[in-house]
């Protein structure tokens, strides 16, 4: 998917346009829902406890997988960078390209067939799917650091470890965070597909709604998932701006 380049925005009213729009859409959604008379099938899904459960499952899947990706892929990217071998680099970039070409739905279903269905399968395929983009962003972010800056730090007497922590990682952080943001948004989408392998989430509503031909169920599921994706992307953008080193 797209890699965000992360532009700094003013922290004004503009910042809150996105969540405001989401709130308006959700309010309209529930107002519309209030005008409908629901049949028994619709009542079974369109109630607060069902909606909250599916939303929670969806968020857990998204957040846990992204956290795992951050814990695994960033150190792996740092390691790949520090070996400084052309072969490792070519391997990582090549693997990243193939990973990008792989359809998420294929990964999820393959893992379900060779292993089992359920939450943990979905979690692992999410981690596997988002691992490569974050790894690649970490590697390219570190490589992008200006050579002269690195040299100057070494000349000041910093050890390679100090250069990594104080110079290279802070300078690479916008690119690394942009990778994580992409991974988060990805996960919301892939977590929707997780319904195919019985891993819950809001995808359940979409699939059930389609199967039982209940349009309100589809609409609520789809709009909730879309709102989560938009809000997570917005929040990640906010975090990106807040943690960016001052000088950048």
């Amino acid at each position: 998917m797209t890699v965000h380049t992360g532009q700094r925005q003013g922290l004004g009213l503009k910042r809150f346009g996105t969540p405001l729009a989401v709130v308006v859409v959700l309010a309209a959604l529930f107002a519309w829902l209030g005008t409908l008379t629901l049949d028994s099938i619709e009542q079974r899904t369109l109630n607060a406890s069902y909606l909250l459960d599916r939303t929670r499952e969806h968020l857990v899947l998204t957040v846990v997988s992204s956290a795992l990706v951050a814990l695994l892929a960033i150190p792996a990217g740092i390691a790949a960078y520090r070996v400084r071998s052309k072969a490792v680099r070519a391997f990582v970039i090549g693997l990243g390209n193939i990973g990008q070409a792989t359809p998420a739905v294929g990964v999820v279903i393959l893992l379900a067939i060779v292993w089992q269905t359920g939450f943990y399968t979905a979690l692992i395929s999410l981690v596997a799917y988002c691992f490569l983009p974050v790894l690649r962003n970490t590697l390219t972010g570190l490589e992008q650091v200006d050579h002269a800056t690195r040299e100057a730090a070494r000349g000041m007497g910093m050890t390679p470890r100090q250069v990594l922590w104080r110079i290279e990682l802070p300078l690479a952080s916008p690119v690394i965070l942009a990778g994580l943001r992409t991974a988060l948004v990805f996960s919301v989408g892939v977590a929707t597909i997780a319904t195919f392998i019985n891993a819950g989430g809001l995808g359940d509503m979409i699939v059930n709604g389609l199967k039982l031909q209940r349009y309100p169920v589809i609409v609520v599921g789809a709009v909730l998932v879309a709102s989560i994706a938009v809000l997570i992307d917005w929040a990640a953008g906010l975090v990106e701006d807040l943690v960016r080193p001052r000088g950048l």
């Binding site: 998917m1 948004v185 989408g189 929707t192 597909i193 979409i206 709009v223 998932v225 879309a226």
Partner: peptide
Amino acid sequence: ITIPSLAL
């Protein structure tokens, strides 16, 4: 573009 494709 952030909207999940299955939802759309």
